[in-house]
């Protein structure tokens, strides 16, 4: 007998499993996976300006910083300004899907690829953002590698206001609708990496970024 059969066999015996109740159980499972009921959710005003306001408020509470510009085309200049203001290098690794913007004009040297250890700044877009908690939802793809939001000390994310949703459930619904099957990696990011392991004192910048900066595109 395999371990699988042994474990499942004991679970089945303890649940008084029969062919008949297995069949009805499977139907119940399939029904549930279609219905996908939701639990109670805190109220989040779904109106666009309210979503923007809440995302900003919660992002700041997560120790992220936020800048607001109108359009995507203005993002490179905002990135350059942030980097200069914080005395960070004007050099970044970037998601290939964002590489077509005019970074040269803004004075930022970008490399469109996955991140390596030496990269100090990583620039990403986001699949959507979650207003409830101030969270970025990043879906991995060949032109959106996960390492860019992870290895560099500074992570800059470009967030179109139209992609702000109230809660995590809405992010998942969007993923199902737009992507079909889930990507290999969905990463929900809420502020810089941190640890409280030593004396329960929160320190920013554990293994991931020390800084997370959102550039909110209000007109997009």
């Amino acid at each position: 007998m395999t371990t699988r059969d042994d474990i499942l066999g004991r679970v089945r015996a303890r649940l008084n499993r029969t062919d008949a109740n297995a069949a009805t159980g499977r139907i119940a499972i399939d029904t549930l996976l279609v219905a996908r009921p939701q639990g109670p959710r805190p109220q989040v005003d779904p109106e666009k300006s309210a979503l923007v306001a809440r995302l900003i408020e919660k992002s700041l509470a997560q120790s992220s910083t936020v800048d607001r510009v109108a359009t995507l085309a203005e993002a490179p200049a905002a990135v350059a300004k942030y980097l200069r203001d914080n005395s960070l290098p004007l050099q970044a690794v970037i998601w290939p899907q964002m590489g077509q913007l005019d970074w040269l004009a803004a004075g930022v040297a970008v490399a469109a690829r996955g991140a390596v250890d030496a990269d100090l700044v990583g620039i990403t877009g986001c699949f959507c953002a979650i207003a409830e908690t101030g969270t970025l939802m990043l879906c991995g793809a060949p032109d959106a590698p996960a390492s860019v939001s992870l290895l560099p000390e500074t992570h800059i994310a470009i967030v179109p206001a139209s992609r702000i949703v109230p809660g995590m459930e809405d992010g998942f619904a969007l993923a199902r609708a737009e992507l079909g099957q889930l990507p290999r990696a969905i990463n929900f990011i809420s502020g810089p990496s941190r640890t409280g392991d030593i004396e329960q004192t929160i320190v920013l910048g554990a293994h991931g970024p020390y800084r997370v900066h959102l550039i909110l595109l209000e007109g997009q």
């Binding site: 919660k58 509470a61 997560q62 908690t133 101030g134 969270t135 099957q181 889930l182 990507p183 290999r184 990696a185 969905i186 990463n187 929900f188 990011i189 809420s190 502020g191 810089p192 990496s193 941190r194 991931g208």
Partner: peptide, 10 residues
């Protein structure tokens, strides 16, 4: 309210 990283890996 939420942990810094929630990864859903598939």
């Amino acid at each position: 309210s939420i942990s810094n990283y929630v990864s859903v890996l598939t």
